[in-house]
C-alpha cells in the first residue's frame, strides 16, 4: 500500500516537472529557427552584410578624397513591405554602431530623438547659464541620407512554404540627389509544417 502511494507521488512530481514552464539562456548569436519567421539571426546576418558592403563601398573613399573630411550620414525611413512585422532598427543600429566605431563615417541624429534634442536646446535658452547654453543653428548638416525597404516573396502549398526576404538600403547624396550606394541582402527559407 505504501509503495503504491510513493509511486503515485513520484508520478505526480515527474508529471508536474515535465509540464513546468522552462526558460534557458542562449547566446544571441545562436538563435534557433522555431517558426520560420524573421528572427534575430536574420537581423544579425543582414547587419553583418550591410556593414561589410557599406564600409567597403567606393563612395566613402571618393567623398573623403574630394572633400577632405569624413561623410556625415542621417538615417531616414525604412519601409517594411513584407508580410511580417519587421523592425529595421535592429540592423540599422548595428550599422550605425559600425559607422561610429570605425570613425570613417559621421552620424547625425534624426526623427523623434532630434526633436527631443532641439526641445532641450530650446529649454536651455531660458533656463541654462549663458556660458553653458547651446546655440541654435550650429548643427552638422548631413551629406548623405540612408533609406531602405524590406520586401518578401511567399510561396506556400499545403504544409510547405518558401519565404524570401530582400532587404535594400540606399545611400543618397542630399545635395546632388545622386544614389551612391545600394546595399542588398537576400534571405531564403524553406519551412515544412
Amino acid at each position: 500500500m505504501r509503495s503504491i502511494k510513493v509511486l503515485t507521488l513520484l508520478t505526480v512530481i515527474l508529471f508536474s516537472m515535465s509540464c513546468a514552464h522552462k526558460v534557458s539562456r542562449i547566446e544571441p548569436t545562436e538563435t534557433p529557427d522555431i517558426s520560420g519567421k524573421w528572427n534575430n539571426t536574420d537581423s544579425r546576418l543582414t547587419a553583418d552584410e550591410m556593414i561589410k558592403q557599406c564600409l567597403s563601398g567606393g563612395w566613402l573613399s571618393e567623398f573623403t578624397d574630394k572633400k577632405g573630411k569624413k561623410p556625415v550620414v542621417i538615417v531616414g525611413m525604412v519601409s517594411n513591405k513584407s508580410h511580417e512585422h519587421i523592425e529595421a532598427e535592429t540592423f540599422i543600429k548595428d550599422l550605425e554602431r559600425a559607422f561610429i566605431n570605425t570613425s570613417k563615417v559621421g552620424l547625425v541624429q534624426s526623427g523623434k530623438k532630434r526633436e527631443e534634442m532641439r526641445a532641450e536646446k530650446g529649454d536651455q535658452q531660458s533656463n541654462a547659464s549663458v556660458s553653458t547654453m547651446k546655440k541654435f543653428g550650429l548643427e552638422n548638416g548631413a551629406d548623405f541620407i540612408l533609406q531602405g525597404s524590406i520586401n518578401s516573396i511567399v510561396d506556400a502549398y499545403k504544409r510547405k512554404k518558401t519565404v524570401t526576404y530582400q532587404i535594400n538600403l540606399e545611400l543618397t547624396n542630399i545635395e546632388t540627389n545622386e544614389m551612391v550606394w545600394i546595399g542588398d541582402k537576400k534571405i531564403s527559407k524553406y519551412v515544412k509544417n
Binding site: V75, E89, R114, V154, R159
Partner: peptide
C-alpha cells in the same frame, strides 16, 4: 525618419 514604416501584406498560407 529613423523609423520603420510598416506596410505589411497578408501572405496566403494553406496551413
Amino acid at each position: 525618419m529613423n523609423t520603420t514604416e510598416q506596410k505589411t501584406y497578408k501572405a496566403y498560407d494553406w496551413t
